[in-house]
């Protein structure tokens, strides 16, 4: 149901005035097919787990989301480093797009993690090392996005955000390490989110989840990148127009 609404959006963006192109249209269609296959296998064909029951189906969307949230962070750090080094706007926009999409997938991870925890552990939230570090990741990403969306000149925003983005991956590592020590020092090793052994159709569903979510991630980053590029063009043009207007005023008076 939900995939269909996404479908009408993703496939109909091939018009001349949009962020779509032939490549992204094909990518969008492939993504939708992959998501359809994921729904088929994840919700219908794959069996329930012996220990987790039906809740194992949440894993097929939760685990890929978590992985891609980290991929997005790496993209942001790489983009920030190249921007600071080469002053390349292209990479700066990649960093921005990566961070925003990463924040989306982090939100998915947190929500699905909590919805998995309720039937499995009986509570929405436990101070599990992975859930906690994912929550910290969300806060770090929100910090980056807050700086990147400042109402200031492009140079100021981009450079300051790049410093924050540069430190994103080191921070994620340190936070993960500290949270892991913190939890393991105090209680028995945390409950693992992934099942002990996943095989057959369950493994295939998880694999499909990875493919479908990776495709969706790429599609989103490309489109978000183009929107960010357009935003900067409009910003710069608005400034140019304002300067031209002022100059014209000067000539008249």
């Amino acid at each position: 149901m939900t995939t269909e609404t996404a479908g009408s959006v993703e496939t109909s963006d091939s018009g001349p005035t949009s962020t779509g192109s032939r490549t992204t249209m094909i990518l969008g269609i492939v993504t939708l097919i992959a998501l359809g296959v994921l729904v088929l296998f994840g919700l219908i064909l794959s069996p329930a787990d012996e220990n987790q029951g039906e809740a194992v189906r949440i894993m097929y969307v939760h685990v890929p989301s978590a992985t891609l949230s980290y991929v997005g962070c790496f993209l942001t750090t790489i983009g920030s480093v190249v921007y600071l080094w080469r002053k390349s706007q292209w990479w700066e926009l990649v960093a921005y797009a990566g961070a925003e999409v990463a924040a989306l997938f982090t939100a998915f991870t947190l929500v699905t993690g909590m919805l998995w925890g309720r039937p499995t552990w009986g509570v929405f939230w436990v101070w599990d090392a992975r859930l906690t570090s994912e929550a910290m990741l969300m806060l770090l990403l929100l910090g980056y996005l807050a700086v990147r969306r400042l109402a200031a000149d492009y140079e100021v925003r981009a450079k300051r955000a790049a410093i924050v983005g540069l430190l994103l991956v080191p921070n994620v590592f340190i936070v993960r390490q500290s949270v892991q020590w913190w939890r393991t020092l105090h209680q028995t090793p945390t409950l693992s989110l992934s099942g002990a052994e996943i095989q057959g159709l369950m493994l295939f569903s998880l694999f499909t989840g990875f493919i479908a979510f990776t495709l969706a991630f790429i599609w989103m980053v490309i489109h978000r990148f183009r929107v960010a590029w357009l935003e900067e063009q409009v910003d710069a043009e608005g400034l140019d127009a304002a300067i031209a207007e002022r100059r014209a005023e000067g000539v008249i008076s």
Partner: peptide
């Protein structure tokens, strides 16, 4: 902005 940026980053130090 500073607390939003700094406090999550300093979480490992607090722990």
């Amino acid at each position: 902005l500073l607390p939003l940026l700094l406090l999550p980053v300093l979480a490992p130090v607090l722990i």
